Computed example of a mutant assay.
Amino acid sequence: METYVTYLPDGSLDGCFIQEPPEEHADRMIPVEPAVALNWCTYRANEARDGVELAPPAPAAPPEVLDYTAAVQAMLDAKPKERRYDGILSACTYATSTVPRFKAEGQACVEWRDAVWARCYQLMADVEVGKMPRPTVDELLAMLPELMWPE
Results as ranks from 00 to 15, higher is better:
M29I: 00
P100L: 01
Q122C: 13
P63G: 00
P34K: 09
V99F: 08
Q107W: 07
E139L: 09
A95T: 06
C109L: 10
M29L: 14
Q19V: 12
C16M: 13
P31C: 04
E146F: 06
E23G: 11
L8A: 07
P22V: 10
A108T: 04
P59E: 10
A108S: 01
L141D: 02
P56K: 11
P22E: 09
H25E: 15
Q122E: 14
V127M: 05
F102S: 08
K131I: 14
S12N: 10
I18G: 00
D86L: 13
D27Q: 14
P150N: 05
I30T: 10
R28P: 13
D14T: 08
C92R: 15
V129R: 15
E151F: 02
S12V: 12
V72H: 07
W117F: 15
A91P: 02
E64V: 12
M124L: 13
E47C: 05
L141P: 03
S97R: 02
Y94I: 12
R119H: 05
V36I: 15
R113Y: 03
S12F: 00
E2S: 14
G106D: 00
A61V: 00
F102M: 06
I88W: 01
W112I: 02
A74D: 09
S12H: 06
L123A: 12
A26H: 15
M75H: 09
A26K: 15
L13F: 01
R44F: 05
P100D: 01
F102D: 04
L38Q: 12
T3P: 06
T42D: 14
A91N: 02
P133M: 07
L13C: 13
A108R: 01
D114I: 03
L54C: 12
A35K: 11
K81Y: 01
L123S: 08
W40G: 04
E82K: 04
V116A: 04
L123G: 09
V5F: 11
T69Y: 11
A71W: 15
S90D: 13
A60E: 14
D10F: 04
A74V: 06
E2L: 06
P59V: 08
L140P: 09
G106Y: 01
P59R: 10
V110R: 14
V99Q: 11
L140A: 04
C109Q: 10
P150S: 08
Y7R: 05
E139T: 07
M75W: 14
A71K: 12
P57R: 03
G106H: 01
V99M: 11
E105G: 03
E128G: 15
